[in-house]
Amino acid sequence: MNLTVNGKPSTVDGAESLNVTELLSALKVAQAEYVTVELNGEVLEREAFDATTVKDGDAVEFLY
């Protein structure tokens, strides 16, 4: 899956889609429990991480 992460191209191997929690784990995001996630310009509530799917071509920003 090809994404733009914090403005840079990134690839997650072996996945066509992941939820936000899985993406944080796959990318080994440090202190993931404290990060705010913006997906395609929309800031996500932490409670929505498990239910929100990240797909090929999406833009993700991790805000600390």
Results as ranks from 00 to 15, higher is better:
residue 52 T to V: 10
residue 34 Y to E: 07
residue 45 E to Y: 09
residue 19 N to C: 07
residue 44 L to T: 05
residue 49 F to D: 01
residue 20 V to N: 00
residue 30 A to H: 12
residue 59 A to H: 13
residue 41 G to N: 05
residue 12 V to Q: 03
residue 59 A to K: 14
residue 5 V to D: 01
residue 24 L to F: 05
residue 44 L to D: 00
residue 24 L to W: 02
residue 36 T to P: 01
residue 1 M to F: 13
residue 55 K to M: 08
residue 28 K to S: 09
residue 42 E to V: 15
residue 24 L to D: 00
residue 34 Y to G: 07
residue 51 A to K: 14
residue 9 P to H: 09
residue 2 N to L: 11
residue 13 D to Q: 14
residue 36 T to A: 07
residue 5 V to A: 03
residue 11 T to G: 06
residue 16 E to V: 14
residue 61 E to C: 14
residue 61 E to M: 13
residue 3 L to M: 05
residue 37 V to D: 00
residue 13 D to C: 15
residue 15 A to N: 08
residue 23 L to A: 02
residue 51 A to M: 13
residue 11 T to Y: 15
residue 5 V to L: 07
residue 38 E to P: 00
residue 56 D to W: 06
residue 18 L to G: 02
residue 43 V to T: 09
residue 49 F to G: 03
residue 46 R to D: 02
residue 52 T to K: 06
residue 48 A to N: 12
residue 38 E to F: 15
residue 22 E to P: 00
residue 33 E to S: 10
residue 57 G to V: 01
residue 25 S to N: 11
residue 38 E to S: 15
residue 33 E to Y: 09
residue 35 V to Q: 04
residue 63 L to I: 14
residue 29 V to T: 05
residue 1 M to N: 01
residue 61 E to D: 12
residue 10 S to I: 15
residue 40 N to M: 02
residue 51 A to V: 13
residue 16 E to N: 13
residue 39 L to P: 00
residue 31 Q to Y: 14
residue 26 A to S: 06
residue 23 L to E: 00
residue 44 L to E: 00
residue 32 A to H: 10
residue 22 E to G: 09
residue 3 L to W: 04
residue 28 K to L: 07
residue 58 D to K: 00
residue 37 V to T: 01
residue 52 T to Q: 06
residue 53 T to N: 10
residue 2 N to D: 05
residue 47 E to D: 12
residue 40 N to D: 01
residue 5 V to R: 00
residue 23 L to N: 00
residue 55 K to P: 01
residue 2 N to Y: 11
residue 47 E to C: 12
residue 5 V to N: 02
residue 16 E to R: 12
residue 21 T to L: 09
residue 43 V to I: 12
residue 27 L to A: 00
residue 3 L to E: 00
residue 46 R to V: 05
residue 57 G to K: 05
residue 63 L to D: 07
residue 44 L to Y: 05
residue 53 T to R: 13
residue 52 T to Y: 06
residue 36 T to H: 09
residue 48 A to H: 11
residue 29 V to F: 07
residue 62 F to H: 02
residue 45 E to V: 10
residue 54 V to H: 01
residue 2 N to F: 11
residue 42 E to P: 00
residue 48 A to D: 10
residue 18 L to P: 03
residue 45 E to H: 12
residue 64 Y to M: 08
